[in-house]
């Protein structure tokens, strides 16, 4: 399907993109004929059942996987070049903090690898810790923090080197509902403050609807996009917006999309 309406600067652009894994059991079509354009400052969620290729698509944007058909560009470059240019920060399902580094040490990791000066490292660590509301926790070791705080630290790590794009792969999937709600609110605030372009993989319908300006509904076998929903919700979203009729209407449409793409298995 075509989807290019109303986008000023394309940040991520996929055209007829496909990705096939060669396995011992024959080829697996993880993604097929994906067309999507993400503009600057958008918050795009990818939702679908497991095997629909949502994570694979995010990994392809990050040049962790490589498309086998069609094209994919990030900031007008190949994903590999974009990565060299530090185009994105990536947040994984688990926080993945190094247990032998303090929180500040973990956030410093990309800065050390990218060769920032010592002073700049310190300054940036302080700044992103404040951004995710973890001021004063820099000297703690990961095991001294709760799961939610660890995931916030991993978001801080992804923000530390000022990439314009933030890619998040089910970052709150392992957290309980209450912590998740809180972090969802914080992510929205962060997005408003930093004006980053965010790609967010989730399998929670309320999370996708609450966060996104656009929701990309995907379905498996082969992984493909079945629906792209523009959210009419305002940019400022209190948690109780989730009880509003608009919210419920979008959630309903997402659910319909998932069901349609998945036959009778949902």
């Amino acid at each position: 399907m075509k989807d290019t309406a109303g986008i000023a600067t394309p940040v991520i652009e996929a055209k007829g993109m496909g990705l096939t894994f060669e396995t011992n059991d024959g080829p697996v079509h993880a993604l097929k004929d994906v067309n999507l354009t993400v503009g600057k400052g958008e918050f795009v969620s990818f939702i679908g059942p497991s095997g629909c290729g949502k994570t694979t698509f995010l990994r392809a944007i990050a040049a962790l996987e490589h498309p086998t058909e069609g094209t994919l560009t990030v900031n007008g470059m190949t994903p590999d070049a974009a990565r060299q240019a530090r185009a994105y920060g990536y947040v994984f399902q688990a926080a993945g903090l190094y247990p032998w580094r303090t929180i500040a040490g973990n956030i410093r990791l990309p800065l050390e690898i990218m060769g920032f000066s010592r002073d700049e490292q310190e300054e940036r660590v302080e700044r992103v810790l404040a951004l995710v509301d973890l001021d004063g926790f820099g000297r703690k070791f990961p095991w001294q923090l709760s799961g939610g705080m660890q995931q916030r630290a991993s978001i801080a790590r992804a923000l530390a080197f000022d990439a314009d794009i933030l890619l998040m792969d089910e970052p709150f999937g392992a957290l309980d509902e209450i912590v998740r709600d809180r972090l969802n609110e914080e992510v929205l605030k962060l997005w408003a403050r930093t004006e980053k372009t965010i790609g967010f993989v989730t399998h929670s319908i309320p999370e996708a609807v609450y966060l996104s300006t656009r929701i990309v509904v995907m379905s498996p076998r082969p992984g493909r996009i079945t629906d792209v929903i523009e959210s009419p919700l305002p940019k400022d979203r209190p948690l109780d917006i989730r009880d509003s009729p608009e919210f419920i209407a979008i959630a309903h449409r997402v659910r319909e999309g998932l069901r349609a793409g998945h036959g009778d298995e949902v």
């Binding site: 990050a62 040049a63 962790l64 990565r83 060299q84 994105y88 920060g89 990536y90 994984f92 399902q93 688990a94 993945g96 190094y98 990791l109 990309p110 050390e112 690898i113 990218m114």
Partner: peptide
């Protein structure tokens, strides 16, 4: 794999991967 992927997203060299991870 996740920790190695994280370093790949930083375009870390094999040397950096060795010393830091």
């Amino acid at each position: 794999a996740m920790q190695l992927d994280l370093l790949r997203t930083y375009s870390a060299s094999p040397a950096a991967t060795f010393w830091k991870l």
